[in-house]
Structure formats: structure tokens, C-alpha cells
Design a binder for these strands. Sequence first.
DNA 1: ACGAGGATGCTCT
DNA 2: GAGCATCCTCGTG
Length: 213
Amino acid sequence: MSVLGQDFFARPTLEVARDLIGVTLVHEHKKGKISGRIVETEAYTQDDPASHSFGVLDRVKGRLHVKRRGYGLFEAPGTAYVYLTYGMYWLFNVVTEPAGIGGAVLIRAVEPLEGLDLMRAHRPGVRKEKDLTNGPGKLALAFGIDGRFHKRMLTGSPLFFEDTSEKSTLAIGTSSRIGIRRGTEFPWRFFVRNNPFVSPGKPSDHVLSGRDF
DNA sequence: ACGAGGATGCTCT
DNA sequence: GAGCATCCTCGTG
């Protein structure tokens, strides 16, 4: 087991998204340790109409405007990009590529490993274990991740990624991404095949699988 | 199992 | 004012 450092994230976004499958997400929470195995991710790149970084550079004529949404995607690799969607749910991303290039990976689902009691406390009313973390908004709630983590470095405590040795045996599928209107033609969602902890959402182009890795 | 509809607030046009 | 990288509840089958 080893903690993933900046060099892991300073690579092409698609590679990072694929390689994060099987990695353990750890939050050393004040009330106890929470962890889960990542089973679903999505890649968002700079030249991607679905990404918050899309067109940001052009619209300000080459100069980044700090207040604009998407600015955080140009931060150093391994930085958290956390934002509120639908006015209610935090979505947790990790910034990829060298600093100055706007890419990130959305963590969409994990399989709970440690801190199930804390997850349940953060997700009152949830009955089945898989419903604790089988979606990007759900896992943020279960892990206690919110806007306070925006722009924080994810290469050490309290929130970080831990590599494991069992990854190579995982059957990884791909599809178009979920919940987007533009960029639906890109198969940039990665997930563990036949894993019950993957989110129930439908890919935006209604094609269930691309090629496998 | 699956689909429709509402919640809710920030960003951008 | 529209759109949003979502989730929950409540229908029907």
C-alpha cells in the first residue's frame, strides 16, 4: 500500500481516471477513519464541452479570471476540485495533468471498506449498504466531503488515495458519461464490471459499454 | 426494476 | 431565466 503522489495525477486525464479504479479513497475523519474502493470514475478534460474548464481560457482572452467557475481545474495535479451541483450536492474531483492544464477526474462511486458506522451517520435513512456510496453526491455525503475541501491537496492526511496490489485482476468497462448534455460522444466513464457498488445512472448516449481494458 | 417529477441554489446568459 | 457532472420519493409493472 502506498499513498498516491502528485506524479500519479500529473498524467493524461483518461489514464488517471482508468488507473484510479481499484484505488482506495481514505478520509481520516475527526470521528474515525472512512475508506472505500473506487469502482467508478469519469474523466473531464480541457477541450471537453462537458467540463467546467471548457472555453474558460478563451472567454477571458488568455487570462484566467479567479472568480469564474472551473478555475480550480487549472490548479496543481492532486488538488481537490469540489463544487455544488443542483443546489444541493457536492461533487468530488481530483485535478489532473500538469498545473495550467484544466483536467480532472470525478469520483462517482466507491465500495465501502472502513467506517461504515460513520457513513450511515452521514446518510440517515439509507437502508442498503450499497446506497451509501453508489453515486457522486452520495459518496461525498458518506465521506463528509464538502466545499471546505475545494483546492486542498489530496496527497496526504486527512483526505488521500491509497494504491493497492489487487488492481490488475479487475475487469474495467467503459461508457459515455452520466448526466451530461454535451460531450456525450466520449466514452470517458470507467467502472468495475458487475460490481454492485457502481452507480445506477444511465450513460448519456444510452450505450452501456465501450471497449474493455 | 424503472421512470417521472420535485427539491434547491449557484453560475452564466 | 435557464441550466445544472444529483438524489429521493412515489407511482406502475
